[in-house]
Design a protein around this nucleic acid. Structure first.
Length: 353
DNA sequence: AACACGGCCAACCGCCTGAAT
DNA sequence: CATTCAGGCGGTTGGCCGTGT
C-alpha cells in the first residue's frame, strides 16, 4: 500500500481566501513553520486542502514576497531568462528574489508577451514572428538588389532553395490559417535574413555546413541561432549606449536564443533596420536622418557604429569592406556569420494585434 | 447611470516526479 | 517492485475592477 490520502476531498472550501483564513494560516506557520501541508490545514483549523494552503502561502502570504510593479531591471531579467529557460516560471522566479512563479507568469502573459508580439517578436522563440514573413520583401529588399550586391562585390547568398522553402512555408500557412492571405496583403513587415558572403567575410566550411542545416533560414529558432552564432558579442554591443552589453551576452545564457536588446525594448521597437550579428541585433538606421534609405550604405553604417574595443584589423582597405566590429582575420569565425534583419517600417501597428 | 468590454491576477486544475509505504 | 500520494509546476479559469460608450 502507498500513503494514506492527504485530506478529505469533501467539505473543503474553495475559492478566494478570507482575511480570517489568511490569519489562521499565518499564525500557524509563524508558530510551527511550514511543511507537511497534508496535516497543516487541520492543525491550523482551516477547511482547505494542503495544496490550497501551500499555494496561498507561497504566492501571497509569504513575508518575503515583493509587492508592486516589476522594475525595469526585473522585466529585463525575466525576458532574458525566458529566452533561455522558456516557461520555467519557477526557475525564473528563483532568480528574482521576492517574486513568485505565479506572479512572473501572470506578468509575462499580460504585459511582456503582448509587448513582444507588438514588436513582431515571437514570445516563444524570441525571434521575429514567422507569420509576419513576407516573401515579396525578399525580392524587393534593398539588400538584395544589384547595387548592394555590387557594393559588397558579391552576390548575396540567397539560396534558391531557401526561397522555395519560404514559399512553401507561406503556402502551408495559407492552408492552415485562412486569415494568412490577408496578412500577406499587408505592408511588408520583415525582410528575411540574408546571409552574406564575400571575399572579406568568407563563410568557412564549417559555417556553410551549419547554414545548410537550417531548412528555411527565416526565422531562426533559438537552437539554430545558437548553432550559428559566435559568442563574441560584448565588444560589439558595448559600443552602443542604448544596448546593454550584458543583455546581449547570450553565451552566458547557454548560447540559446537571440540576443534581443531587452534593456531597451522601446528603442528597439522604434528602429527600422538591424544588423544581426553574433548574438545581438544592432540598428543600422541612419542616426542623422532617422530614415532608412533604400540604398543605404550598409558597410559604412556598420563602420560608423562599431568602434572596436580592440585594435581593428580591417580585412581589406577597401572602404566598402569594413570589417564589422573590427574583427581580426584571426576572428574569421566571428566575421563569417553576418546576418541582416531589415525591418520595414510598420505603418500600421495593428497588424500585430 | 447603466452597460459592455477587456485587463489583470488569485486560485484552481491537471500533470509529473520523487518519495513513502 | 508496485502502488499511492505529497509536493511542485505550468496552464487555465473566473471574478473583480477600471475604462469606454
Amino acid at each position: 500500500m502507498g500513503r494514506s490520502p492527504c485530506c478529505e476531498k469533501n467539505g473543503l472550501k474553495k475559492g478566494p481566501w478570507t482575511a480570517e483564513e489568511d490569519q489562521k494560516l499565518i499564525d500557524y506557520i509563524q508558530k510551527n513553520g511550514y511543511g507537511n501541508w497534508r496535516t497543516l490545514p487541520k492543525n491550523a483549523g482551516l477547511q482547505r486542502c494542503g495544496k490550497s494552503c501551500r499555494l496561498r502561502w507561497t504566492n501571497y502570504l509569504r513575508p518575503d514576497i515583493k509587492r508592486g510593479r516589476f522594475s525595469f531591471e526585473e522585466e529585463e531579467t525575466i525576458i532574458q531568462l525566458h529566452s533561455v529557460l522558456g516557461n520555467k516560471w519557477s526557475a525564473i522566479a528563483a532568480r528574482l528574489p521576492g517574486r513568485t512563479d505565479n506572479e512572473i507568469k501572470n506578468y509575462w502573459n499580460t504585459h511582456i508577451r503582448k509587448r513582444l508580439l507588438r514588436m513582431g517578436i515571437d514570445p516563444v522563440t524570441h525571434s521575429p514572428r514567422l507569420d509576419l514573413l513576407d516573401i515579396s520583401s525578399i525580392l524587393s529588399s534593398s539588400f538584395y538588389n544589384q547595387s548592394n550586391a555590387n557594393m559588397f562585390g558579391v552576390q548575396p547568398m540567397v539560396n534558391p532553395e531557401l526561397l522555395r522553402l519560404a514559399a512553401s512555408l507561406l503556402s502551408s500557412q495559407c492552408d492552415q490559417n485562412p486569415s494568412f492571405p490577408h496578412q500577406i496583403d499587408q505592408k511588408p513587415q520583415f525582410a528575411p535574413i540574408l546571409i552574406q558572403e564575400n571575399d572579406h567575410f568568407p563563410l568557412q566550411n564549417h559555417d556553410q555546413s551549419r547554414i545548410q542545416e537550417i531548412p528555411s533560414c527565416v526565422p531562426f529558432s533559438s537552437d539554430q541561432c545558437a548553432q550559428l552564432m559566435e559568442p563574441n558579442v560584448e565588444q560589439f554591443s558595448s559600443n552602443f549606449s542604448h544596448f546593454n552589453p550584458q543583455s546581449c551576452q547570450l553565451n552566458e545564457w547557454q548560447n540559446n536564443g537571440i540576443g534581443l536588446p531587452s534593456s531597451d525594448l522601446d528603442n528597439f521597437m522604434a528602429m527600422e533596420n538591424y544588423v544581426f550579428q553574433g548574438s545581438s541585433i544592432q540598428s543600422v538606421v541612419d542616426p542623422a536622418s532617422n530614415l532608412t534609405p533604400s540604398n543605404f550604405d550598409f558597410t559604412s553604417h556598420v563602420s560608423n557604429l562599431s568602434t572596436p574595443s580592440s585594435s581593428p584589423t580591417p580585412l581589406n582597405s577597401n572602404s566598402n569592406s569594413t570589417c564589422i566590429n573590427g574583427s581580426s582575420t584571426e576572428d574569421e569565425s566571428y566575421c563569417s556569420n553576418l546576418f541582416k534583419y531589415e525591418y520595414q517600417e510598420i505603418l500600421d501597428s495593428n497588424v500585430f494585434m
